[in-house]
Simulated scan of single mutants.
Amino acid sequence: MPRFLIRLAVSAYQRLCRALWFFTRPHSQGVQAVVRTPGGNVVLVRLSYRAGWHLPGGGVKRGETPEAAMLRELREEIGLASHTSIRQADRFEHVIDFKRDTVRVFLVEGAVYRPARSLEIEAVAAFAADALPEGLGSRARRFVERVGG
C-alpha cells in the first residue's frame, strides 16, 4: 500500500478519535521515555500522524502498570531488544485533543533496539543529547535535558 494512503488512513483515524473525545472528554494515562543507547544517544521517533520528532510512548492499558506499558510501547515503537535500567523520572498532566492526560516520563538506559516497519512510526533514530533534531518539541527537549541529557 502506498505510504500516502497509510498516512491518510492513520490521520483520519486520529481525527475521528479527537472528534469523539470532544464529546466524551476522557481521562487517560500515558507514558513517554527518554531512551538512551549504550553510547549515550537519545532515541526519538517520527510518527505518521504528527509532524516532527517525539519521545517514544503511548497509552497505559487497563490493568497494566506504567512501567510495563512503557516497555510494551518501546518494543512496539522502536523494537526495544534490551535495556539496562528503567526508572520513572517525572510526571505531568495536560489536556491534549480534548482529553485529560496524566503522563509518566521514564528514563530508559542502555537501550538496544531494532526498528521494525510500522503504520504508526515512520522513522526511529538516535541523536546526541547536545545535537537533537529540529522539530523536537520544547517539552520533550526539556525532558531530555533534565533526565537524560
Rank of each mutant, 00 (worst) to 15 (best):
I6D: 02
L132C: 01
R104F: 01
M1I: 10
L132Q: 07
L74T: 09
L44D: 00
D130Y: 06
G40C: 09
W53I: 01
F98G: 04
T65C: 07
A68E: 13
N41I: 02
G52T: 01
S82E: 14
A51I: 08
A125W: 01
D90N: 12
F98S: 11
P133Q: 06
Y13A: 15
G52L: 04
T24Q: 12
R146P: 01
H54C: 08
A128K: 06
D101L: 15
M1A: 14
Y13E: 12
E73G: 06
G135Y: 00
V10P: 01
R50V: 13
R46Y: 08
F92M: 14
A12W: 09
T37Y: 04
G149M: 00
A89G: 03
V10L: 05
D97T: 07
A126R: 06
A129G: 08
R91A: 14
R36Y: 02
A12N: 05
L8G: 14
W21V: 07
E67T: 09
L107M: 00
G40T: 05
G135F: 02
R100W: 11
R100E: 04
V60R: 04
K99I: 01
K99C: 01
A69M: 06
G79S: 10
D97M: 15
I121E: 14
A81S: 15
L8E: 14
G30A: 12
A33Q: 04
E120R: 14
T84Y: 08
E67I: 05
A89E: 02
P66V: 02
R18G: 06
I86H: 01
R75C: 11
R50L: 15
S11P: 04
V42H: 05
T37R: 05
D130L: 00
E67R: 09
E77M: 13
I96K: 10
R104M: 09
W53E: 02
